[in-house]
Design a protein around this nucleic acid. Structure first.
Length: 156
DNA sequence: GCCAACGTTGGC
DNA sequence: GCCAACGTTGGC
């Protein structure tokens, strides 16, 4: 799951009560479908900082709720307001996420790219990818954990 | 700030 | 249903 640190950072999540926060504001149907139809309670998540000086993965969180309607879509004062959403016909969904642990070291997008051979079909690395919620295969997950615990890449 | 790569909107 | 125009994302 991607987040712009200036909007909601890893540290912001760490500062929340129970290190838990609603993940709201997703306004893309494909990402919405992953949240609503694919995610399950206890699923683990890589927390990715995007649109910042050095984009990359900072740690692991987990899903701690089922999907439920995103009420920010109903609030005209919210930047996430969507006039086409309705109380009785929710268009956008959220899950609650809880911090699990920080990575032993930051893994930058650049380092992920350097290991592209071992991250086949990882949608984060594909051209023009703009999805804010991206599925991670078991193989990709394991390799990234492996990367975390080795000294590969440039940010030693 | 630039721009590629999308996604969405709306006229037809 | 097509597609041009427009808006957004996100790396650089």
């Amino acid at each position: 799951m991607k987040s712009e640190p200036e909007v909601f950072s890893w540290q912001d999540l760490a500062n929340k009560p129970h290190k838990t926060s609603v993940w709201d504001g997703v306004r893309n149907y494909q990402a919405r479908n992953f949240i609503r139809d694919v995610m399950s309670v206890n699923d683990e998540i890589f927390f990715y900082h995007s649109s910042c000086k050095t984009p990359g993965i900072v740690g692991i969180a987990k899903v701690v709720s089922k999907a439920y309607p995103d009420i920010t879509a109903l609030n005209p004062q919210s930047p996430y307001f969507d006039p086409k959403s309705a109380v009785d016909n929710a268009r956008w969904f959220v899950v609650d996420v809880q911090l699990v642990r920080s990575f032993a070291r930051f893994i930058s997008l650049d380092e992920l790219r350097q290991n592209q051979e071992n991250l086949k079909n990882f949608p984060l690395l594909t051209r023009g990818n703009r999805l804010s919620v991206i599925p991670v295969t078991y193989e990709n997950w394991q390799f990234i954990l492996h990367l975390e615990n080795t000294k590969l890449g440039t940010n030693l």
